[in-house]
Design a protein around this nucleic acid. Sequence first.
DNA 1: TAGTGGTCTAGACCACAGG
DNA 2: CTGTGGTCTAGACCACTAA
Lengths: 259, 259
Amino acid sequence: MGSEALRHSGKPRYLQIADDLADQIRSGVLAPGVKVPSESEVMGRYGVSQGTVRKAVAELRTAGLVETHHGRGSYVRSLPPVRRKSSDRFRRSHRKAGKAAYLVETEGAGHTPGVHVLYVGPMDAPTDIADHLGVAEGSKLLARRRRYFVDGVPTEEATSYLPWSIAEAVPELLRDNPGGGGIYARLEEHGHHLAEYVETVRARLATKQETTALQLSPGAPVIHLVRAAVTDEGNVVEVCDTVMAADRFVLDYRIPACD
Amino acid sequence: MGSEALRHSGKPRYLQIADDLADQIRSGVLAPGVKVPSESEVMGRYGVSQGTVRKAVAELRTAGLVETHHGRGSYVRSLPPVRRKSSDRFRRSHRKAGKAAYLVETEGAGHTPGVHVLYVGPMDAPTDIADHLGVAEGSKLLARRRRYFVDGVPTEEATSYLPWSIAEAVPELLRDNPGGGGIYARLEEHGHHLAEYVETVRARLATKQETTALQLSPGAPVIHLVRAAVTDEGNVVEVCDTVMAADRFVLDYRIPACD
DNA sequence: TAGTGGTCTAGACCACAGG
DNA sequence: CTGTGGTCTAGACCACTAA
């Protein structure tokens, strides 16, 4: 009985099994990409029922150690490359090189970047975005939604929102590729001189859609970052809403000391 | 059979039940703090077995909507206070008021702050901290570990590390309460003029210990923040390692645009 | 003690992937 | 087709909590 094993160790059987497997993964007995023994095999090996094995594997999944695929099996997760989002990525000098920040960052780390444009076009302002932009809810905005990849693995999904009145004066913004230096370069070329960026960072569990879009395990955490670009006049001309796979990013910020 | 219901909706029964309950919570039918119907009651109401109900409740738990207590029942989580860590919280002018940043932030939001000092004393430098401080691994450091509360609920655990050579010259740092303005004020009084703070932000799932310390549900995400305090001379005099319950914080950063 | 959530079983059927 | 993970049941026993 399970209760017997429980008395022996003071720990649920499914956690013992999960720890056993986790040790094998961390020690390299089960290498990244390798198939984890099937449920029925683990059932036999430990003499437990399927439900117990499933609970054990669920533990490993939320710990980010394995990913499960219906009909195929469970596999040890290969650790994805970590990208570092530094706060000086918005320097104008970087834009002059003509490359977007993510390209430089990713290639510099020896990885292959990729972007997929999901949508570029008009959209009614959602409440939270409207708040940031200082416009009415439901106002017409330009939305630019794209998904970023590193070595073919999706890591990030970002949507930029701009008031339509600003966007229509900058024709490049309606194209999939806004050109060298990205949309901030285009905005500054059209007289919107940027003074600062304000970022707010949250962390939470991924929604079902995000789990799919970013190929995450259920229960995996994401970083939700909202950045507002503010001009010299104090106007917010763009808001960028980004959802990142938490285990693939580290955010860096430099805060100058002041009085 | 479950398969029948599955065909009807294309959705697993346990998710239907979870969604039903989630709707009742969001619509206010089940208010914060209220007891969720017991497993046996839900079993009867939906005509499913205990395992199915448990999976549904597990969903609500990882979604942060509910907390379960062995032997007592499940309760709708009362929305926790959100503290806003603005990047200007380290201004010297705030320190002159004599209050620590967390006190001002928490009281300003209408909540009752609390601190519990867990440890103040010497410690050997862990590798990552040693890297930040630019000292050898295993060097003698002063460690100051404390847990922060909001309205009695633990929200954050932070450890400050300082090279022992610096700490021993500032006697207040060895006391539980370092005095008005916190350790940054003491450091500046002793000639360490701070030029900037560098923060690195990660998000991940809580470990077992963190789950206990911060009273989180298993599988809940945390924000892991490491801040280095840098002097005019470019020396790192303090590193603060903080783990926060992700759903209780929003981090704010202002990034000045520059060339 | 009664009621609650936590663990476990033995067996069933389903949906998916691959040979 | 076989083997895999995903869902579900009916029933059992345990551990914790509160009356």
